[in-house]
């Protein structure tokens, strides 16, 4: 049976893991290479490496840090941040990424998604969507690491990138990010129920129950978390044991 995946996320800024609340107030959370080794050995199903300030600082992902992370990682590695051109994808794959996550560039240039998927395969292209609820009670897509609003509806956007060849959606609730108050389950449900591709739930995990809710109520295929793992609140095996007890299929 296909397992639900638990994915620790390394948000990297200037070569260090950082974690903030609602995308700001970043604090240092360690060395990405060392942390990747630990998560790999502790049973993570996949790793996500996001260079969170690459787009806003207008620079490319730290290829050498990606390479060192990949060398220590024998599980799938998704890398994102600052992907603007097809050659950026190629460089990341050469540095050892298995999947590449695209955010701002996909919003600005939808045909880039199609081009990327045709060249490197649907399964290599993850579209990261930063979603925030607006005053009209709709979820709106934000870009540049959550700095710029776009006026684009999240559900419409996810359906569009799926039709263009995206293989997976990494859906982050900006309202919940770093708050430990649980996933935005309404957002998740709305997205997972309308898509045929897998969705990674991100933003808001604070308790073991939250992981289960994201899967059972939100319909997520994978759950991503950062703070609870980086600061040692839970080990990956704690999460898996909890989910297994709830009859959720996980890789033990």
């Amino acid at each position: 049976m296909l397992k639900k995946r638990i994915i620790p996320c390394l948000d990297v800024d200037n070569g260090r893991i950082v974690k903030g609340v609602n995308f700001v107030d970043l604090i240092d959370a360690g060395d990405p290479v060392e942390q990747a080794k630990i998560y790999d050995s502790e049973g993570a199903d996949e790793l996500c490496f996001l260079d969170i300030t690459a787009t806003s600082d207008n620079r490319q992902t730290l290829l050498d840090t990606v390479q060192k992370t990949a060398e220590n990682c024998f599980i799938p590695l998704t890398v994102g941040g600052g992907v603007r051109e097809i050659k950026d994808i190629k460089n990341l794959l050469h540095a050892g990424a298995d999947k590449v996550s695209i955010n701002t560039t996909a919003v600005n240039n939808r045909s880039f998604v199609k081009q990327a998927a045709e060249k490197y395969g649907t399964s290599t292209i993850v579209i990261a969507v930063d979603a925030k609820k607006n005053s009209h009670n709709n979820w709106e897509v934000f870009t540049h690491g959550g700095r710029n609003r776009t006026g684009i509806n999240v559900i419409d956007y996810c359906q569009e990138v799926e039709s263009l060849g995206a293989g997976e959606i990494l859906l982050t609730s900006m309202d919940r990010d770093g708050t430990k108050s649980g996933f935005d389950l309404d957002l998740l449900k709305n997205v997972t129920s309308t898509l045929n591709i897998p969705v990674i739930a991100s933003g808001g995990v604070g308790t073991l129950e939250h992981f289960a809710e994201g899967i059972l109520d939100g319909g997520a295929n994978s759950v991503l978390a950062a703070s609870v793992f980086h600061f040692g609140q839970f080990k990956i095996k704690d999460v898996k044991r909890y989910l297994a007890d709830k009859n959720i299929p996980v890789r033990i």
Partner: peptide
């Protein structure tokens, strides 16, 4: 069937 996502992505037995 509709409730199975494609790509088949992840760990399977």
């Amino acid at each position: 069937p509709l409730d199975f996502k494609i790509p088949h992505m992840g760990w399977n037995t």
